[in-house]
Write a protein that binds this DNA or RNA. Sequence first.
DNA 1: TCGTGTCAAGATCTT
DNA 2: AAGATCTTGACACGA
Length: 316
Amino acid sequence: MDIRFGYVAIALNLSNSSTSKTITLKNLAKIGGTEPKFTKLRRITSENLENTLRIIRYNMEEQIHLYRLTSKLIPFATYPLEFEWNYIDIFKKEFEMIGNLIKTAKIRVSAHPDHYTVINSPNEKVFSDSVKDLEYHDHIFNAMGLEEQYKLVTHLGGFYGDREQSIARFKKNFSRLPHGVKSRIVLENDDKIYTAEEVLEVCQELKVPMVLDLHHHTCNPKGDLEELIPKIWDTWTDFRPKIHVSSPKDQKSCRHHADYIEASSLTNFLSLTKKLNRDFDVMIEAKMKDKAMFKLIKDLSEYDDITTIDQSTIKI
DNA sequence: TCGTGTCAAGATCTT
DNA sequence: AAGATCTTGACACGA
C-alpha cells in the first residue's frame, strides 16, 4: 500500500516563498489615502499568490502530492475596510492559474482555518465571524475551480465548561453552515479538549471525514488506536484517509511542534494500518516544512519493510 | 543584519 | 471584570 506525504504553507527549499505576507491594521492606517492602501494590499496579495504558484510548480517537479494552502493568503479577507476589497474579482486570473496547476499536477490541496474560527462558540458573533472565515476559504477554493473534495480541516472548538453541551452545540451550529462550506469540512482531534474518540463519534453522526492527528492523540489520548483506525478510515467514503503528523519540541511541552519528525512516531502507526491495506496520506506539521518531509521519508526508507515509490511516497 | 515588540480575530486560566 | 498566556509567522523598528 502507498502512503503519500505533504507539507504546509511554505517550501524552505525555495527562497522567499512566503505565501502569508501581510500588514497590520495599524501600519495600513499609517498609509495615507484609500488608493495607496488599496495598492499596498493588492501588492501583498499578488506576492502571496505568485509564491503559491511557485510552490505548486515546485510540488509538481518534486512529485509532492499533498499540500496545505495558508489561510493568510489574502490579508484582511474578512475584515471590513474603508474601501471595497474584492480580491476574488481582482485576482480571478491568478486563482484560475493556481487551480488549474493544482489539478494538472493532481495535488491534494487543503486548508486549515485559523483558531479564530470556532464553530461551537456560544457567542453568536464569534459563530457568524467563523462562518465568514469559512466562506472566505470556500470562495478562494471556488475561484481556483476546486470542488468539494478539496477540504477545510477544523476542530470542534472550545470546552465552555461542559463537554456534552459543547459537542451538541457543534452539531447544531454545523447544521447552520452554508452548504458550500459544510460540504468541505473535515474534523480533527485536538491536543487539549476533544479526543480522537469524541471527534470520531461526531464525524460518524454528521457523516464528515475525520483527520486523525497522531501528535494530538498522544497529548490528549482516549481509546485504543488499533480499534479507532478502521472506524476513522471508514469516515472517508470517497477519498483516501489523511492524518497529521508532528513531533513534540521537547518532553516538557508536548504541544509545541519540533523542527523535524521522528520516524519512530510513525512506525507503530504504520504497522497498525497495514492490515487494513488502504492507501492514505500524511500531512507533515513541522517547522522545517518540505525539508522535514524529505528527511522523514529518508529515515523511514531505512526500515526493512519500507520502500520509496517517489520522493514523497512510500510503500509498506 | 539581527533582535525585539507588535499584531484583526478566541479561549482559558489567573487575579 | 480585567489581564496574562497560549500560539504563530511576519512585519516594523531600532540597535
